[in-house]
């Protein structure tokens, strides 16, 4: 099986879906000439032409509106926002229009639109280019929110998102584009709304999203040496949430840690935590713990941003707290 990067996996998904259906097109800032900021569409302009790969001006509202209008006319747009921070300009179209028209048409209108972007810290871009804003979308009825964490997942999920008839907010992480993994050459799809157990374990369930999944796995590795067996669940789709996989796991382990890069307050991590409390109360040995970024703007600097977001060490620390294991390192944050 070939080993490819996360970015290459995205490109394969684009290519397969654009070949399959001429109505699929990608539109966004520098998706053509540059092949997107992290090179996930390089060469596709030459391959598919400007009808399917559209470089757009820096006009996020127009890009999003163009997605809504063209989806209305039977096309299948993928509208890309270079940084999730810029999506604030497009929120009106996403929230007030894309998410509403299926209902306002009593189901007659379908808006198959992928709203694709990348977020998160880790590339020293400070507070207007590093945010984790997924919580905004989870709270809007009518939207599906996806956050892939691996090359294998991003390809299968993106293909499903493109084929889905709902508006799907598809949020990548800027630190994942160069991660490598074996990805099959034959076609596969990963269903939206289905979580993945990234590591099985018996003592603690760690629910982690996006970039945090890899840190959770690193932490699980460290903790295994200390005799703590962690199950790591990646929900992949934040909403609709695969509650079943989470519930099953926590019923087994009796302890649960939720890890997100977004701050905890008012966020999806609270939703995930509530799901566990509502369904696993009698099995829980302790209340669910959340380990999320400090509620701050992401600071600039070579290393500072890593200190405000969870990492492998701090996740391990949070698990030790849950399991009453002795702390081997100071907790951050």
């Amino acid at each position: 099986m070939p080993v490819i990067t996360f970015g290459e996996a995205i490109k394969q998904a684009y290519r397969e879906e654009m070949q399959r259906d001429k109505n699929v097109f990608l539109m966004g800032e520098d998706v053509g000439r540059w092949g997107s900021l992290y090179r996930s569409s390089t060469g596709l302009l030459e391959e598919f032409g400007s009808e399917q790969i559209k470089d757009a001006p820096i006009s996020e509202a127009a890009i999003a509106g163009c997605g809504v209008g063209s989806a209305l006319m039977g096309m299948r747009p993928i509208v890309e926002f270079m940084y999730i921070d810029f999506i604030s300009i497009a929120m009106d179209q996403i929230v007030n229009h894309a998410a509403k028209w299926h209902q306002l048409s009593n189901g007659k209108i379908k808006l198959p639109m992928v709203i694709k972007t990348q977020g998160g810290a880790g590339r020293r871009n400070s507070s207007q280019h590093s945010q984790s804003l997924e919580n905004w979308f989870v709270n809007v009825p009518g939207l599906i929110t996806v956050m892939p964490s691996t090359p294998y997942d991003v390809k299968g999920l993106l293909k499903s998102a493109i084929r889905n008839d709902n508006p799907v907010v598809f949020i990548e992480h800027k630190c994942l584009y160069f991660d490598k993994q074996e990805v099959p050459e034959e076609e596969y799809l990963i269903p939206l709304g289905k979580a993945d157990v990234k590591r099985t374990g018996d003592n603690v369930t760690i629910i982690a999203t996006s970039w945090m999944v890899s840190f959770a796995l690193q932490a699980a590795e460290t903790l295994a040496d200390e005799g703590i067996s962690c199950e790591v669940i990646d929900p992949r789709t934040l909403w609709p949430l695969d509650k079943e996989t989470i519930i099953q796991s926590v019923k087994k382990t009796g302890l649960c840690l939720v890890v997100t890069e977004a701050p905890a307050e008012g966020g999806w991590s609270g939703e995930a935590s509530s799901v566990v409390h509502e369904h696993c109360f009698s099995e829980l040995k302790k209340p669910v713990k959340r380990h999320c970024s400090i509620r701050t703007g992401i600071p600039y600097g070579a290393t500072l941003e890593r200190e405000v977001i969870p990492g492998a060490e701090s996740i391990a620390g949070a698990v030790r707290e849950l399991t009453n294991a002795p702390s081997s390192s100071p907790l951050t944050p």
Binding site: G65, G69, M73, Q93
Partner: peptide, 13 residues
Amino acid sequence: SNLPIATGVAMAM
């Protein structure tokens, strides 16, 4: 809000 949507409709047309 309808002006950006109009561009998408027209682009598809």
